[in-house]
Amino acid sequence: MKLPAALETFADREHVFEFMARGSRVPRLDVSHNVILYLEDITVAFDGFRALNDLTLYVDAGELRCIIGPNGAGKTTMMDVITGKTRPDSGSAWFGQTIDLLQLDEPEIAAAGIGRKFQKPTVFTEHSVFENLELAMAGDKRVWRILFAKLTPAQIERIESVLETIGLKDQRDARAGSLSHGQKQWLEIGMLLMQDPQLLLVDEPVAGMTPQETERTAELLLGLAGKHSVVVVEHDMAFVRSIARKVTVLHEGSVLAEGSLDEVQNNAKVVEVYLGE
């Protein structure tokens, strides 16, 4: 049965409506200097308390960076600034050379190529693993397309590729609500990958996982590095050691130390304020 012209437009997966095109105004990402994230002199104060205090941090393109620090060090606020949830009182935040994050709202930042995974996984529990990835597909936010549109071979191939990456190929038809905690975490990472982000922010990914799930998560994040830039906030030092190449320690809203895990673990100030707790 042929659809009316108006519904054909809704069903067209390649059609982009004006209200969906906000990200099209975002400049093209430029990492020609090999740095994907610039945070410079960022200060955020809440009722006089400085959650971030002249924070300066740089992340290289393709890097996997671990961020550690005691509670209240500013880790969550830092991610809130990067994703547009919180506006700093001062400082600058750039995504590559050309994208001023402080001039964009949250949807525009996501469209520019920054994805964030919170500690608690959020998936569509009544839908299958495959359907969760389909719903998360970049550029596929139309209401009517679920009713009328069919996936193209390229889109199916993309979902299958992500299923392979996150290790859930055998669970493709399983209801997401039936997955283990670790599998739900991997599925949410897969949902972010469907948006094709250049920078992934991952908050405490192994909290509550079994040792086997933790090991698999380390393999997953290491496999993403290079293809994506990955920033991991984590308290589990054994997990950090398994994935870290460079570690940044935050304390009182500023960078206290930076370097290899061995270097920061042997830093007297870090031991005093964090590792010695």
Rank of each mutant, 00 (worst) to 15 (best):
G208A: 13
E164K: 13
E204G: 10
I146L: 15
R145W: 13
I159Q: 03
L221F: 01
Q195M: 10
A138K: 08
D173H: 15
V162S: 00
I159C: 06
Q185G: 07
S178T: 15
E213S: 07
D105R: 05
E126Q: 10
S178D: 15
S180E: 10
W186F: 13
R175G: 15
E131F: 08
L220N: 01
Q198E: 13
Q183R: 05
V162A: 00
E213C: 05
G167H: 10
Q198Y: 11
H181S: 14
P197A: 06
I146M: 15
A111M: 02
E157Y: 12
L147P: 14
R172I: 11
Q198T: 12
G223V: 06
D173M: 14
L192K: 06
R175T: 15
S178F: 15
A149I: 02
L200P: 00
M194T: 01
T217F: 02
A136Y: 01
S180I: 11
V123Q: 02
Q185C: 09
T125V: 11
Q183K: 05
I166K: 02
K150N: 13
I146Q: 15
D170F: 14
R142N: 04
D173G: 14
E106Q: 13
T125F: 09
D170I: 14
I166T: 03
S128M: 08
A207L: 10
H181V: 13
E160P: 12
Q185P: 04
A111S: 06
T214D: 13
R172P: 12
L200H: 01
H127A: 14
V123A: 01
L224A: 03
L163K: 06
L147C: 14
I146K: 15
K184A: 06
T152H: 12
N132V: 14
V202T: 02
